[in-house]
């Protein structure tokens, strides 16, 4: 089974290397914009995959096998694996350089440097006339994050018990609920808050409410995971002891599990609020309201002195919150 997976990894690596050479590196060298015929790309991928797989089978060890820990190559086979590894890395770096359009010429060009100079100049000579507007937008952002955390905490708290393996291990039904809940939470967490913000800004209109809802979704997903992992980590002794008194299921949760989790829960929650303030800023860029929205407005009309004010304010608030939340979490331990 693992061998099959190793062969698939080798095949994918070989195919990527073949495709990168044919689609990206060769056209760049020949200064053409890539052959239109996709059959060449397929041919190159197939060839790459075949070479990697056959080399792996011939050497009795391969990159895929090593990365899964089932191969420990020596001598000749080690040389084969390491040659293929270096080849892969080089092709990826060269291909990646071309794809991301890295251009030292533009980075160091006179025009470019002058532009950068203007922006930095503007940023370090901030326009403090807008400070009132900036502070009130910052307050909107901080409270967007705060309210998102406040709304998310009770939801996460209730969800964290059915999302904890040790609470749900009793019957097949509870195990199924646990697995389904975990999958949903993982999907919710994989979707960036910025995507949720786009969805909610269409749903409830652009503004702090959309930003808050986006943060609530992401916060629920993250906090539930952290809370439930904490629940899975509790000492089972008190659970036994409270069960032995004839306590009901809910009583066992409340008296044996919750007291062991309160402090870590608080600590996670404060940290999450801290993260949410940063996220609320970013979410503002796509219509979540607050200082992020203000920043995009001034940036859109190239008022970089005003942007400078906002950047300084954001940096200061994030830094202060970071220090404060770290201190509080330290004290809670």
């Amino acid at each position: 089974m693992k061998r099959l997976l190793a062969i698939i990894i080798d095949g994918l690596l070989g195919a990527s290397v073949g495709a990168l050479i044919e689609r990206v590196i060769v056209p760049a060298l020949l200064d053409t914009s890539g052959a239109a015929d996709t059959s060449y790309a397929l041919l190159a991928s197939g060839l790459g995959a075949a070479i990697y797989i056959i080399a792996g089978l011939a050497a009795k060890s391969s990159i895929g096998g090593v990365s899964l820990g089932i191969d420990t190559p020596e001598g000749r086979s080690l040389r084969t694996v390491s040659h293929l590894g270096w080849l892969t890395l080089s092709v990826f770096i060269v291909g990646g350089w071309i794809i991301t359009a890295i251009s030292p010429i533009e980075f160091f060009s006179g025009d470019g440097l002058a532009g950068a100079g203007r922006i930095f100049q503007a940023l370090i000579t901030p326009e403090f006339d807008i400070i009132g507007e900036a502070v009130s937008a910052m307050i909107v952002t901080i409270f967007t994050a705060f309210m998102a955390t406040v709304v998310a905490v009770p939801i996460s708290f209730l969800l964290s018990f059915p999302a904890a393996r040790n609470v749900m291990s009793e019957t097949p039904l509870t195990k199924t609920i646990y697995v389904i809940l975990r999958v949903i939470l993982n999907i919710m967490r994989s979707m960036e808050p910025i995507i949720w913000a786009i969805i909610f800004s269409v749903w409830v209109g652009i503004g702090p409410f959309a930003g808050m809802l986006a943060l609530v979704v992401h916060t629920v997903a993250s906090l539930t995971k952290q809370y439930s992992e904490q629940i899975e980590d509790v000492n089972s002794g008190p659970i036994e002891a409270i069960s032995a008194t004839g306590a009901s299921r809910i009583q066992v949760l409340w008296f044996a599990i919750v007291p062991q989790c309160v402090i870590p829960f608080l600590s996670f929650t404060i940290y999450r609020w801290d993260i949410n303030v940063r996220m609320a800023t970013i979410i503002g860029f796509v219509g979540g309201g607050g200082i992020g929205t203000l920043l995009t407005q001034y940036q859109g009309v190239a008022k970089y002195n005003e942007v400078g004010t906002l950047v300084i304010l954001i940096t200061a608030v994030v830094w202060i919150l970071d220090v404060v939340s770290a201190r509080v979490r330290e004290a809670l331990r």
Partner: peptide
């Protein structure tokens, strides 16, 4: 297997959980 952060008397009272309605106990 006591509840570490709770007071001694509370821990003793938890012996009565079986005889106490869930909501009252909470």
């Amino acid at each position: 297997n006591l509840i570490p952060r709770h007071s001694v008397i509370k821990n003793v009272l938890y012996g009565a959980l079986g005889a106490t309605p869930t909501l009252n106990a909470m």
